[in-house]
């Protein structure tokens, strides 16, 4: 059975206002999809819904052939505690949690995997450095190294290239392509149109509802982008109740 993430008429939101409205579609196994749209389009909310951090207002996220704990996630840096005194190696070793839990030994092999992951993201020699002494870009590489260690079949990235320079972005994009070649499913929330067009074969264009979902070239057609730009970011407090919802 092929693994997939099905969104069945999914509505996610806050205080009865939808942030993602009646979204249906499938993230197929091995797909590389960009979630693209203006600020307030519901992109990060969608990731939270898929991760099970936000219960749907209606509809469902249906995981086929995978469990929720098979999903790995790269959060935005604002959601981390950057001043926490932790070594780079310890931050990457965190990725073994699913296999080792609270008490499992982190033996030499697992440590070597973490060191190799740091090498993959270009941070060799940084093992003993404190995370809080590194730059935003270096911290982002650490999060990518943690994903390498997690070795998950599905990887969700929330604005992974926002805080980093061009070289680091290129390196991490290469890593994302490698994940795709390995058959992993990757879903990334992105803001850079050109980046999406160049590197992501599938795109979900979101403006609270799906304006398009499919091959990037078609999804990001100029008229659709114009439609996305005209999305109203503000809630209407007096909006009528949605008729598609069950009574």
């Amino acid at each position: 059975m092929r693994r997939a993430i099905h969104l069945d008429n999914l509505t996610l939101g806050y205080e009865r206002h939808p942030a993602v409205h009646h979204l249906s579609g499938v993230f197929q196994e091995g797909s590389l999809t960009a979630v693209f749209g203006p600020n307030g389009a519901g992109k990060s909310t969608l990731l939270k819904g898929i991760l099970g951090l936000l219960p749907p207002l209606s509809g469902a996220v249906r995981l086929v052939g995978i469990q929720r704990r098979d999903l790995a996630f790269l959060p935005q840096q604002v959601e981390l505690e950057p001043d926490f005194p932790m070594s780079v190696l310890d931050a990457v070793l965190m990725g073994h949690w699913r296999r080792r839990g609270a008490w499992g030994a982190l033996d030499r092999e697992l440590r070597q995997q973490a060191v190799a992951a740091l090498e993959t993201v270009g941070l060799s020699g940084f093992e003993k450095r404190a995370v809080n002494a590194l730059s935003g870009g270096q911290r982002q590489r650490i999060l990518f190294a943690r994903l390498v260690v997690e070795d998950a079949p599905v990887i969700l990235l929330d604005e992974p290239f926002a805080p980093i320079d061009a070289q680091t972005t290129a390196d991490m994009l290469a890593l994302v392509h490698r994940w795709r070649e390995q058959g992993r499913t990757v879903i990334a929330v992105l803001h850079d149109l050109e980046q999406v067009q160049r590197h992501f074969p599938q795109t979900l264009l979101l403006a609270r509802r799906a304006l398009a979902w499919g091959p990037t070239e078609q999804a990001l057609a100029p008229e659709r982008l114009e439609q996305a730009r005209s999305m109203s970011a503000a809630w209407n407090d007096h909006a009528p109740w949605c008729r598609k919802d069950p009574p």
Binding site: Q67, F73, E79, L80
Partner: peptide
């Protein structure tokens, strides 16, 4: 370091 990590790793 990452307040939501364990919840995500535990499947929500």
């Amino acid at each position: 370091f990452d307040p939501a990590y364990l919840r995500i790793a535990g499947g929500g």
